[in-house]
């Protein structure tokens, strides 16, 4: 479902060139559960951004569901992000002035889904994540775990093909972390492709397939 072919990403920092990704080849099948680990600056975040179409490779090819994304224009990329990709971030990235419900609604609103259809879908989703009593609360009135569940609800409301999580438990206590991991793994069990970028070895080890990155290249790709 995801195919990276000889992908490099080069940043110009001052007069230095930094190879964040160095000729990476990667194949991820539908329904896989992949963790990406590695030290800071190993390129794992850049990999996630490229997989999520937030960033484009400097060279190489990225096929998502068989389509070459490197030829997409800005609007097409946005549409694919909205419909096929879900993001979960370390810092939740909820819009502070909107309620939990409205935050989850965002992708549907951007897609132009009529309010009635939107509400139905969002309510059902919030119920599934045990957030129905917190619908009308704003992010600052929610706990960390609840915020991340709202973010997961938002990431999955358009029923994407792949969920990309960047340190999803990095800002949470143990109990909440456990809760969030369970939620993500539940989604994966239902067939959603899950890619988790993390520092946390405990979290990384839970994945069926573990990728270790060093200096912009895949150093280890194991499926124990």
């Amino acid at each position: 479902m995801i195919t990276l072919h000889d992908v490099s990403r080069v940043f110009e920092v001052g007069d230095q060139t930094v190879r964040a990704l160095d000729h990476v080849d990667l194949e991820i099948g539908a329904g896989e559960y992949v963790s990406v680990m590695g030290p800071s600056g190993s390129g794992k975040s850049t990999l996630l951004h490229i997989l999520g179409l937030l960033d484009r490779p400097t060279s190489g090819q990225y096929l998502l569901e068989g389509r070459d994304t490197t030829t997409f224009d800005e609007a097409e990329l946005a549409d694919v992000r909205r419909m096929r990709i879900g993001f979960v971030f370390q810092f939740f990235h909820l819009v502070p002035r909107l309620t939990a419900e409205e935050n989850v609604e965002l992708p549907l609103m951007l897609a132009g889904v009529p309010p009635h259809a939107r509400h139905e879908r969002v309510r059902a989703l919030l119920q599934a994540y045990h957030l129905d009593e917190r619908r009308q609360h704003r992010p600052d009135q929610l706990s960390g775990g609840q915020r991340q569940r709202v973010a997961i609800a938002r990431a999955t409301v358009t029923r994407p093909a792949v969920l990309l999580a960047d340190e999803p438990t990095g800002n949470l206590d143990r109990a909440s972390s456990h809760d969030i991991v369970a939620t993500l793994e539940g989604l994966n069990a239902d067939g959603l492709t899950l890619v988790v970028v993390t520092h946390d070895p405990d979290l990384g080890k839970r994945a069926r397939r573990r990728i270790k990155m060093v200096d912009g290249a895949i150093a280890e790709d194991s499926t124990p």
Partner: peptide
């Protein structure tokens, strides 16, 4: 917020 909007699929 703008970055987030882009991530969840807002066009420019």
């Amino acid at each position: 917020e703008i970055g987030l909007l882009k991530a969840v699929g807002a066009r420019a």
